[in-house]
């Protein structure tokens, strides 16, 4: 605490303070949340390498060459696989599909869950009960199995994988947002709005919804890691992203037993990338939760 002013370290309300420089604030929050910062740094690396993949590696991830099973070298940083494709290129291009599927399915699924919960919890009654029972059924079931069956039925394509994971995510967000709506709708400002004759939609979207944003963000960030794992698991089972798109999960299937002795970099590289990304999302999710939910601080 040598470089930070004393007053800043005792301030507990938020991380940003008026009059403080951007970098100072950043440094301060990094000190206070070392694990969350580590998560953010890891994610920044994963996202940057996925976005700028063509500038990082000259290799085409799908180019089949005769340089098969080469060990890591200056030319191929993580070696090549059984088809002579550059493993490093496949790993960083693989991040693209993982992040795309993770973000899209999380936004779609948690968004649908939140809207559903918002409307059904506010109105209550039979409709709410029906939605709840349906969520219970979805919730009681292993999410990977539901996603697997949905993709089997719809056929495996990137769009269907996103859809399947989104469906699996719905009950999570619905449950969290619902309990918040039940609290908020009894608040005096909602009663006041009702007394003033505001329309139901106005109350829902201008008074109730903004007060459910914090738990929603917590559940959405916590979901991201899980969504990426589900995509990787589906691809690993051969029901996810169809080839030849590089995908961490697919590149892991069947490579362990075949290349463990001959070329261990083939199964290890995508797995490390996958765990790192999920690790980053989990750390960030924890930090966001601590930040937005003061009751859980310090646990």
């Amino acid at each position: 605490m040598a470089t930070t002013p004393r007053s800043a370290s005792t301030e507990r309300v938020g991380l940003v303070r008026k009059g403080q420089g951007f970098w100072k604030t950043l440094l301060l929050s990094a000190r206070r949340k070392p694990l969350g910062t580590a998560g953010a740094v890891i994610l920044l690396l994963v996202v940057a390498s996925a976005v700028f993949a063509p500038y990082i590696t000259p290799h085409d991830p799908n180019a089949i060459t005769t340089a098969r099973l080469r060990p890591p070298s200056a030319e191929h940083w993580l070696g090549t696989d059984h088809l002579g494709r550059d493993v490093f290129a496949r790993v960083i291009y693989g991040g693209r599909i993982s992040l795309l599927v993770g973000f899209l399915s999380t936004i779609l699924g948690t968004g649908a869950g939140a809207v559903l919960a918002l409307i059904s919890a506010y109105w209550g009654g039979v409709w709410d009960n029906g939605v709840q029972r349906f969520m219970d059924i979805l919730w009681a079931f292993p999410s990977l199995i539901i996603a697997l069956v949905i993709v089997t039925v719809l056929g495996s394509s990137t769009r269907n994988v996103i859809l399947a994971i989104a469906i699996v995510v719905v009950p999570l967000a619905a449950r969290v947002v619902r309990s918040q709506v039940l609290i908020v709708k009894e608040m005096e400002y909602v009663k006041a709005a009702q007394a003033l004759g505001a329309s139901t939609w106005r109350i829902l979207f201008f008074h109730v919804a903004p007060n459910c944003v914090a738990p929603y963000i917590i559940v959405a960030t916590a979901t991201l890691g899980g969504a990426i794992v589900t995509e990787a698991s589906l691809s690993f089972l051969g029901m996810g992203i169809p080839p030849p798109t590089p995908s961490w999960g697919r590149d892991l299937f069947g490579t362990a037993a075949n290349y463990a002795e001959l070329a261990p970099w083939i199964p290890i590289a995508p797995g490390v990338a996958l765990s790192l990304a999920v690790y980053g999302f989990n750390l960030l999710g924890d930090a966001v939760r601590d930040l937005l939910d003061p009751r859980l601080r310090g646990r």
């Binding site: 890691g225 794992v229 990787a232 698991s233 690993f236 999960g249 892991l252 490579t255 362990a256 037993a257 463990a260 199964p267 290890i268 797995g271 996958l274 765990s275 999920v278 690790y279 989990n282």
Partner: peptide, 12 residues
């Protein structure tokens, strides 16, 4: 953070 199939692959 480590999906079970990745743990399985590491073990293999």
């Amino acid at each position: 953070s480590m999906p079970s199939f990745w743990v399985a692959i590491l073990i293999i």
